[in-house]
């Protein structure tokens, strides 16, 4: 491993880091553009908050990578691979909490039948309805995330990176937020007072959905669950193949797999240590992904922990 990460993924990781810095730059420009014209439109405000929240996965990724590259220390002898899962959990909680708050707020606006005022502004000697500037900012907010999301998705798959994958999916789906917001503002302009609040409800629901999905995956990782397929809650096919291979090699043993960040840790319970094992040869999937199997440990008979017996 170079600088704490396997050499096979070092180049992809560097590219992902560069993309996340680009993401932060573009998202700040979007937040500034939208903040300048936000007014009192709820859809606009919710879309702005979503764009601000979409900075979190990018920042979390960069922080987690810094930790992942650190060598194990006396106080953290297993290294910092799990920081990745921990930071993913933090961003998931932030997304879910903010999504819930915004959803409640937009539903309350609908219940109270609040009518939103979008006044004109004086621009270059002309009166321009602020709604048009909002629509322009919302359409601008669609383009960079969709391109960045598409660029990140294959990288996230190769790196087996949940934070990057969630970030890519959120950005790829960002066009819906932008268009929902623009439709809400135009609906408001057409005299439908509820259009803005309905658009805000749709956007906040999508934030909540992103948060809940991320929360489910992060919980599985932190609770030593079996490795999951990227962005899904079912078992990772590569992990399943590995489990079958180990079961074939050690029929009397019980096989346990868990995921720490992007790596798989395997435990063979009920047999003595096998010194012939080689992690690269053992890996049943594509050889270039053998880095995923980071550890194989053996638990001799009668030494299994109580939790392992259940």
């Amino acid at each position: 491993m170079s600088k704490g990460v396997p050499p096979e993924i070092a180049a992809d990781l560097e590219r992902a880091v560069r993309l996340e810095y680009w993401t932060i730059g573009w998202m700040i420009s979007i937040v500034v553009a939208m903040g300048a014209v936000v007014g009192s439109s709820q859809a606009m405000r919710t879309a702005l908050i979503e764009d601000m929240l979409s900075l979190i996965p990018a920042i979390v990724f960069l922080v987690a990578i810094r930790f992942e590259r650190k060598a194990p220390s006396r106080l953290f002898p297993f290294g910092y691979q799990r920081v990745h899962s921990l930071s993913f959990m933090i961003s998931a909680v932030a997304l879910a909490a903010m999504g819930s708050l915004l959803l409640i707020e937009s539903l309350m606006t609908l219940v109270r039948q609040e009518h939103v005022t979008v006044p004109p502004i004086h621009l270059f000697g002309e009166d321009v309805w602020l709604g048009w500037l909002m629509v322009a900012a919302l359409l601008y907010s669609v383009v960079p995330p969709v391109i960045l999301g598409r660029m990140k998705l294959p990288l996230a798959r190769r790196l087996q990176d949940e934070v990057l994958h969630t970030d890519a999916l959120m950005q790829k789906a960002d066009w819906m937020t932008g268009l929902a917001g623009a439709a809400g503002v135009i609906g408001l302009g057409l005299g439908y007072w509820w259009a803005d609040a309905v658009a805000a409800t749709i956007i906040s629901f999508s934030i909540l959905q992103d948060g809940v999905t991320a929360l489910r995956i992060a919980t599985a990782e932190l609770a030593d669950g079996v490795p999951r397929e990227l962005g899904k809650s079912n078992i990772d096919p590569e992990a399943e193949q590995l489990m079958r291979k180990l079961e074939g090699q050690y029929p009397a043993a019980r096989i346990r797999l868990r995921e720490t960040g992007r790596y798989i840790h395997a435990e063979v319970c009920g047999v003595d240590a096998d010194p012939r094992q080689n992690l690269k040869i053992l890996w049943p999937g594509m050889p270039e992904r053998s880095w995923r199997l980071a550890q194989l440990s053996f638990v001799p008979p009668n030494k299994e922990t109580r939790t392992g017996d259940s």
Binding site: E114, H115, V116, P120, H122, D127, G189
Partner: peptide, 17 residues
């Protein structure tokens, strides 16, 4: 002016300025 009456508010805005 009454909230949300954006066309009416637009006209009043122009005249107030």
């Amino acid at each position: 002016a009454r909230n949300g009456e954006n066309a009416w508010i637009g006209l009043l805005h122009r005249e107030a300025r």
